[in-house]
Design a protein around this nucleic acid. Structure first.
Lengths: 219, 219
DNA sequence: AATTATTAATTAAACGTTTGTTTGAATGTT
DNA sequence: AACATTCAAACAAACGTTTAATTAATAATT
């Protein structure tokens, strides 16, 4: 699965994008420590020294990937939920669609994010970046939930953190483990593109129903 | 967070358990590639050579961790869902309780599992072990769902894979990211033990309600 | 427009560490 | 005596990063 190049081409030149893109893919496949700068340089067809030259270090290369990817997604989410004329249920649907899209188009980055998230206390800078991103999502979705509750559409006593973790965790788990989904459902013969469409459709339906259920279901 | 020692003490001697236990913790904190055999040896207070001596290689040490942890959990799950006199709703509750318990007592291993799951095509042996474990869980839960549907308790058209992924993904996400949960809810001052209890209780309620909702909610 | 001066990009080679693993001798246990 | 354990030391290979020399591109000066 290849990273989404287009978004990177503004701040960095062609060669830098090449390095960032390759690094993103390799980090996602082999982990940060499991990927050497020589792996990256080799796959990106550049000299090893270019990585230090452009990014300073391997660590800072990772930060560069995070820095951009996070800022680009946070803005879109804010935009999405700011629309006042859309009713809360529809916003939930938009939220799910948006997240699934992002996940499908940035699978590599989401994997890296999940990895770094698990390590925790590794890189202080990264930890800050990740927390800020989580906080923003939490606040945005909290507001959405509150709006729905105020209008009497959603039930009371909703733990937003658990809800967001469920969206993120469930989606990532499904996406990351899509090869298992394929094998379990004996879909190995299906062409890759068809399978991606199928998975996306099923995920959307499933997640939307799940959230409607969570938000309205009373014992 | 320390690994759960007790389960390992049958097959391995004291020193081996010491190594396995320390390795499990370090792998979960720093990743497999991010942890050196000298890190492990140092933290376990044994000579570096002991790791090769007892386990053959770093890779096989990881496999040893997997081998045991997986087999010990699979059996319990089977036992749990085999009870014929318990109704499907109650089984769902037991399933959630069991999973949350396992997760809380084996957080280290679950992290490693998640990491290896993400890398995918790394270690062939491990891939097989993980898939078999997933398949078993899938089959067991499929049977449970079918039973509930047959009795008219659950709705039709439930995608078991997505449901299992949701349980696993959501729970892991919450647990792995519990430091964020703490910070977002301003629970930093709460004693660790109290917080663990709180989180466990909230997770159980949340997951149970979620599954009941998923299994019964119609548009 | 041609030449020079300046900066940027690129390279192969080398740097000192750290990596996983092995060795062979020493010690403990049966 | 035979076997299992432990150890410091050594191994080659891989690691991230730097160096110093060279080429390419850009700016400045004639």
């Amino acid at each position: 699965m290849r990273p989404n190049l287009k978004d990177m081409e503004s701040r960095y030149n062609e060669k830098q994008v090449q390095i960032l893109s390759v690094a993103e893919r390799l980090f996602s496949e082999q982990g940060f420590s499991g990927t050497s700068v020589r792996d990256i340089a080799g796959a990106a067809n550049v000299n090893v020294a270019m990585i230090s030259y452009y990014f300073g270090s391997k660590e800072k290369l990772l930060e560069a990937i995070f820095d951009y990817r996070i800022s680009s997604t946070a803005i879109q989410m804010e935009h999405l939920l700011a629309q006042t004329h859309v009713d809360p249920f529809e916003k939930i649907e938009m939220l799910v669609d948006h997240y699934v899209d992002k996940l499908q188009n940035n699978t590599c980055f989401f994997k890296i994010m999940q990895s770094e998230h698990m390590k925790g206390h590794g890189n202080k800078d990264l930890d800050g970046i990740i927390f800020q991103s989580k906080k923003k999502n939490f606040d945005l979705i909290s507001a959405l939930i509150a709006e729905g509750q105020k209008k009497g559409l959603f039930k009371k006593n909703i733990d937003v953190s658990l809800m967001v973790s469920t969206l993120v965790g469930a989606s990532n788990q499904i996406y990351i483990g899509q090869q298992y989904y394929k094998r379990l459902h004996e879909l190995d013969d299906m062409p890759e593109e068809k399978f991606q469409q199928l998975l996306k459709k099923r995920m959307r339906v499933f997640l939307k129903n799940m959230f409607k259920a969570i938000l309205t279901y009373e014992l």
